[in-house]
């Protein structure tokens, strides 16, 4: 009796949008457990937690931060291809200001401001001039790495490197055994969540993404809302940029965060949002980023040559998206007895 109830509840869960990405994540980890028996071990080394699970969280932070900003933009039916370039600009700004001798805490602020300025530019093109998002952000995607190189050229030289205890702390530091950047990521996540869900901004973003014309007639300033989404995305990319730059102690505009916009879009989509806009799922976007990172990590520990990485990643992503497609799901429902709705 209760077994049947549980079973029904599990079957009903199938319709919950959170299930498939979580299931995918669990599946990847389980496979990892088989490949490498001590995959789940967590040890304390030099006052710090070590282990594959920690490693996945640690490495997923920048991608998750980018993806969170992307989720907001995608919610407005937009897209931001320039996040990788924004990171390149941030790196250049950081290297430049450190060499200029500014206080390092102030430099973090500069980096975020640089991201915000980039977001303002994107928002101006999309919301102000009405250019299609994919084209509008392509401008900065192409120009951004060039701007980073120019900053280096004038103020630092080729790929300038730097020393900074503060940034080092963000990269490899830890607080109470836990990597510092996880606290940073959690803080940013909560701040963004509060901004979207504790104010009416989330409702406006989803309304504009769902139907901009109707939102306008309902009194929502849809251009301002769209503009704001790109600024948020720019700031989040900049935050990721700070961490990525801290990891390398270098400004390398040509190759830093290459293809990160694609991973970010992927994370948002795995999280269950549609590129057609109208929905923002912050928590699920983080899960999406974790799925991608877990996959990358497992290919590394599986001993497969890294050349397999991209293809296997594509296959798993396809599988997740397949499970999320309504058409595929209703086909599966027909195969599961009692699962029809």
């Amino acid at each position: 009796m209760s077994d049947r109830g549980t079973l029904n509840r599990i079957i009903a869960l199938r319709h919950n949008r959170a299930v498939w990405p979580l299931l995918a994540l669990a599946l990847i980890l389980i496979v990892d457990g088989f490949i490498s028996p001590n995959f789940f071990d967590i040890r304390i080394v030099e006052g710090r937690l070590f282990g594959n699970l920690i490693d996945i969280l640690y490495r997923a932070v920048p991608a998750a931060l980018i993806a969170l900003g992307m989720a907001v933009v995608i919610g407005t039916k937009g897209i931001d291809l320039s996040v990788g370039s924004i990171i390149a600009i941030c790196g250049a700004v950081i290297a430049w200001r450190i060499q200029a001798g500014d206080p390092h805490l102030l430099i973090l602020f500069y980096a975020l401001v640089a991201g915000a300025v980039c977001g303002v530019w994107n928002g101006f093109l999309v919301a102000g001039l009405g250019i299609q998002p994919i084209i509008a952000t392509l401008v900065l995607m192409v120009a951004g790495r060039g701007i980073g190189l120019l900053i280096n050229l004038f103020y630092g030289g080729t790929n300038p490197s730097f020393e900074s205890e503060l940034l080092q702390g963000l990269s490899t530091g830890n607080i109470w055994l836990i990597p510092t950047r996880l606290f940073v990521a959690l803080g940013l996540f909560l701040a963004l969540w509060a901004l979207i869900r504790r104010t009416a901004l989330g409702l406006f973003i989803e309304a504009v993404g769902g139907n901009a014309a109707a939102s306008n007639l309902a009194g929502v300033n849809s251009r301002l809302v769209t503009f704001f989404a790109y600024v948020i995305c720019g700031v989040m990319a900049a935050a990721a940029g700070v961490i990525m730059t801290a990891d390398t102690h270098t400004s390398d505009p040509v190759s830093v965060a290459m293809y990160s916009e694609l991973d970010a879009i992927l994370a948002v989509v795995i999280g269950g949002a549609s590129l057609a806009g109208g929905r923002v799922f912050l928590g699920m976007t983080v899960i999406g980023a974790l799925v991608i990172q877990a996959l990358t990590t497992s290919i590394l520990i599986s001993g497969l040559p890294p050349e397999y990485n991209l293809v296997i990643k594509a296959l798993v992503v396809m599988a997740v998206l397949f499970l999320q497609s309504d058409n595929a799901r209703s086909a599966i429902s027909r195969l599961i007895p009692g699962g029809s709705r």
Partner: peptide, 16 residues
């Protein structure tokens, strides 16, 4: 096209 945001709930559309 001009009235409702189809994916949002009745509540969200009403309070918009």
């Amino acid at each position: 096209t001009e009235g409702l945001v189809g994916e949002l709930s009745i509540r969200e559309n009403i309070v918009l």
